[in-house]
């Protein structure tokens, strides 16, 4: 009795006969991904490259050179209230903000991811504790908590990263928790259990790979959140030290001169916006690109 399917079986989507074709909508979203990645590349290249080709000193104070406007020779973006070069400060400030955001995001992904998966897989007391902790943290205003923690830890790169990580891990943990629980309900996880596969192995084989997409998407969005959060904290005077510029401190410093020298706030503000848009485009692009793949898996 021959039982081999004639020729190659078509990839069958759960939806039935409808082929998953790129409609105008999904093509629009992969465009978002491409745009986001392109922007990210441009920003990184500029941020790394400009200091190499130009002589940029963000901290050089020159009281004779204050409030220079755009396109001043030697200061393409002008100078601020202390005569410091705005371009240099934006480049280094961007570096700082991105550095903090990236580190904080990494920290919170690791803590939150572990917490979420373990809570979902282990159940029992551990699950209760983690879930309550998540609910509690989310209900508290992050800015207030961050302020309190930073007041204790002081200024600097490490305290900022730690604070942001500690305050934000529950957001990611909750998403991972729900996703993991959903994956753990699947029949194929039950089938593994019935075959005697050990629970931790089952989690590694069946749950973790299923979290890839949501992790990538959340990383992008949380990164954007961290940029804004860092800027906010630095704006308030916490976080960034007096020496190292941050987009947030630039906003704070320039606030006094918003009417007379608007570029001092607009330019760092634009940099923040640009970073956030880039991250969001990437997150959106991955999310929608994945959801036309995911349909194949569900």
């Amino acid at each position: 009795m021959s039982t081999q399917a004639p020729a190659a079986a078509r990839p069958r989507r759960q939806g039935g006969i409808l082929a998953g074709r790129s409609t105008r909508l999904t093509r629009g979203y992969s465009g978002a991904l491409r745009l986001g990645v392109a922007l990210a590349v441009i920003l990184v290249v500029l941020d790394v490259g400009l200091p190499l080709v130009m002589h940029l000193n963000p901290g050089a104070v020159n009281l004779f050179d204050r409030f220079r406007s755009l396109n001043t020779p030697g200061h393409p973006l002008g100078t601020d209230d202390l005569g410091r070069d705005v371009l240099a400060r934006v480049v280094y400030g961007f570096r700082w903000s991105v550095g903090v955001a990236a580190t904080a995001t990494t920290v919170l992904i690791l803590i939150g991811g572990l917490a979420g998966v373990i809570a979902a897989a282990v159940g029992g007391i551990v699950q209760q504790v983690v879930v309550r902790a998540i609910d509690l943290s989310i209900s508290l205003p992050y800015l207030v908590i961050a302020v309190v923690i930073l007041a204790v830890l002081g200024h600097g790169f490490v305290p900022l990263c730690l604070t942001l990580g500690v305050v934000s891990w529950p957001i990611f943990a909750r998403v991972i928790y729900t996703e993991s629980r959903s994956l753990l309900q699947r029949d194929y996880v039950l089938a593994a259990r019935l075959a005697g596969v050990r629970p931790y192995k089952s989690v590694l084989t069946h749950v973790i790979p299923g979290l890839k997409t949501v992790t990538m998407v959340m990383t992008a969005f949380l990164f954007a959140d961290m940029i804004v959060a860092e800027s906010a904290l630095s704006f308030l005077g916490l976080g960034a030290t007096l020496g190292s510029p941050s987009l947030g401190t630039m906003l704070s410093d320039g606030r006094t001169y918003m009417v007379t020298a608007p570029t001092l706030t607009v330019i760092p503000g634009a940099a923040i916006v640009l970073a956030v848009i880039t991250a969001n485009l990437i997150g959106d692009g991955i999310a929608h690109g994945a959801s036309s793949d995911e349909g194949q898996f569900e």
Partner: peptide, 14 residues
């Protein structure tokens, strides 16, 4: 051993 009902759900699609 056990074989489950829904062949569309009992195999890990990934």
């Amino acid at each position: 051993q056990m074989v489950l009902q829904n062949p569309y759900a009992s195999l890990d699609p990934r």
